[in-house]
Write a protein that binds this DNA or RNA. Structure first.
Lengths: 196, 196
DNA sequence: GAAGAGAACGACCGATCGTGCTATTCTTCA
DNA sequence: TGAAGAATAGCACGATCGGTCGTTCTCTTC
């Protein structure tokens, strides 16, 4: 890895952390340069535009999410254990050291939901993938006989995701200590209602 | 009402609509002035600072929320009907004409969750009130014998709110037509599991 | 050790930000 | 109707924004 690539990767690490706190729009080139100890122009030379930087940040987040949440879950046994792993791994992701502001996707989805463009498209696609992965895991759990045969897998995924949103809301805005407990209980009741 | 008050109210109406789309931080005085047809300084004279304007916007949203969601629900019969009204009225609020970007509270909670200050405090307090209202309605439903006696009212409120967050996510980011259907189904399963 | 490529720097651009101060115009009420 | 005061406009400020420029420094390669 060349020096340029290393610097670029470091910039993106810092940018990801900052973006999780302040969002992608409030992420300013000048402030970011100060944080990483580069001049503004020196930092900017690594990217074609601010939007390009933002896209790279989201890409990095997606890669990290797959690495931390999806991949480990897919290694778990088919069925309920895999569904459970998806849910539980998500908390590790949200509390990952590079995300002091919590899950980036949730943090920026509000600021992007009315701003068309490649950034929104990228976020949307990754969120659809995420829901798809959950639904697929639920379908596998039906196949394995863990979940009831008439389960609506999409509805299951939707509710699981809603509990994740609820957790994020509680944990970040309310700073509630009970957030994970609440989410866990909600998840358990969802699983219970879905079992065969 | 003096002319000044009328102008101020009109400014806040426009500001509320814009903030629901772009957030409270990206709400700029200059752009807002163009929208309402005032000069930047003419508009600014109505407020002590930008933060003051933002606070007034949130206050207006809170007043409108009470008017559209809480008050009508409290007029419904005690018990499940009242709980149901809270949930259903919320959709009217989110789709209200002055909120083209959806629920303001959800839209700005991500951008405020890591920014301490009076703005965050105000949002937090109103969100706590909201959860409190739901929980109280659930407790009344227990009293009325509609919900089971050992129901955890706070958990019920938490899950109901999670479904609302899920709806907002689906409807605004995904532009999903099924969003309300999904939320409704989730709500029904929650109510079913809570009944006596 | 010379040459060329890659990386970072500082100065600067036009635009916009929030926020003053002052002058002018419009309302309101005696 | 005219004076008092509220409401709005005009203008300017310092700061910061994303972005471009030419220059310099460092590193690799022959």
């Amino acid at each position: 890895m060349s020096k340029g690539d290393a610097t670029r990767a470091m910039i993106l690490d810092v940018a990801l952390a900052t973006a999780s706190k302040v969002g992608l729009e409030a992420l300013s080139i000048g402030e970011l340069a100060k944080e990483v100890g580069l001049s503004k122009s020196g930092l900017f030379a690594h990217f074609a535009s601010k939007e390009d930087l933002q896209i790279e940040v989201v890409r990095k987040a997606i890669a990290r999410f797959i690495e931390l949440v999806i991949s480990p879950a897919l290694k778990r046994p088919r069925g309920e254990p895999r569904v459970r792993a998806l849910f539980e791994n998500w908390f590790d992701w949200s509390r990952a050291s590079e995300l002091p502001g919590g899950c980036l996707f949730i943090a920026v989805s509000s600021e992007l939901d009315d701003q068309p463009g490649p950034l929104r498209d990228l976020l949307l696609a990754s969120q659809k993938d995420w829901l798809g992965v959950i639904a697929q895991a639920a379908r596998v759990a039906v196949e394995e006989g863990h979940f009831k045969s008439n389960l609506d897998a999409e509805q299951f995924a939707w509710q699981l995701d809603a509990f994740i949103l609820g957790y994020h809301h509680s944990a970040r805005l309310f700073r509630s200590k009970d957030a994970q407990k609440r989410a866990q209980r909600a998840f358990e009741s969802l699983v219970r209602a879905s079992r065969a």
